[in-house]
Structures are given as structure tokens and as C-alpha cells.
């Protein structure tokens, strides 16, 4: 569990910050990014086990961001988080290499469970 590293990518800063604090309390090594570009630079610096990615980043196409990040680090597992209760968005994510998708709002416990499973 100590080895698990997570990158949270979401343009909602409040969400990212709180989630990082809570994950750290669980002993997860984690970092946050607020855009696709930010996520890319973080992932170029180091590898993450799991990336939690919001499919609707401001002014960016979630699917494209997912593809780029995936190409940077093929081993990393991606979890999709979306404000849309959309099976198609989730499937688009899964089709592009994500392992699962969650619809906001999601409880921390469920999120944590999915991260661990991933």
C-alpha cells in the first residue's frame, strides 16, 4: 500500500486539494494537476500507479488527454471521473485504456476502494 502512487487530475482545485489530503492520510503517495498539460508535466517527472482523471477538463478534450497520458505511461492505470452520468463517456474512457469510470459525486470510501482495486 505504501508503494501506491496516485495523480489526481481535475480542474476543481478544492476537490483535488481535499482528495490529496485524504489520500495522504491513507498513506497513498499522491499529487494533483489541474489541467491536461499539468498532468503531462507531472507524469514526465515521475511514474504514477493510478491516475484519477476528470473527463471534462476546462477547454480540453478528456479523451484526447487520456490518450496522451496513456502514451506517456502505458503501465499506469487510469480511473475516469465525470460529472456526466454518461455511459458513453465512461465507455470512451475504457475504450482508450481506462480501467473504470465513476460518476460525481462519489464518496471517498468508494473512490479509495476503486483506486486500490485499480
Amino acid at each position: 500500500m505504501d508503494e501506491l502512487s496516485v495523480l489526481v487530475v481535475d480542474d476543481e482545485e478544492d476537490f483535488v486539494e481535499t482528495l490529496l489530503k485524504r489520500l495522504r492520510r491513507k498513506g497513498v503517495e499522491c499529487d494533483g494537476a489541474y489541467s491536461g498539460e499539468g498532468a503531462k508535466s507531472k507524469m514526465m517527472d515521475r511514474e504514477f500507479d493510478v491516475v484519477l482523471l476528470d473527463m471534462k477538463l476546462a477547454d480540453e478534450n478528456g479523451t484526447e488527454v487520456l490518450k496522451e497520458l496513456k502514451s506517456l505511461s502505458p503501465e499506469t492505470r487510469f480511473l475516469i471521473l465525470s460529472g456526466y452520468a454518461s455511459a458513453s463517456a465512461g465507455r470512451a474512457g475504457i475504450g482508450n485504456g481506462a480501467v473504470d469510470y465513476l460518476i460525481k459525486p462519489v464518496e471517498f470510501e468508494t473512490l479509495y476502494e476503486k483506486i486500490v482495486q485499480a
Binding site: 478544492d14 481535499t18 456526466y84 459525486p105 464518496e107 471517498f108
Partner: peptide
């Protein structure tokens, strides 16, 4: 509806996160 739901789901996620964090 999709648009409004999406915009409400994000703050809901933050509220849920903050409440959970306070609880912790």
C-alpha cells in the same frame, strides 16, 4: 439537463469531499 447536472455534480463532489474530510 445534462449541462446543469454536470455543473451541479462538481460542487456536490466538493461538498461531499469537504464533509468527509471534516469527518476524518
Amino acid at each position: 439537463a445534462a449541462s446543469v447536472s454536470h455543473e451541479i455534480n462538481n460542487p456536490l463532489q466538493i461538498i461531499e469531499g469537504q464533509a468527509g474530510w471534516m469527518d476524518e
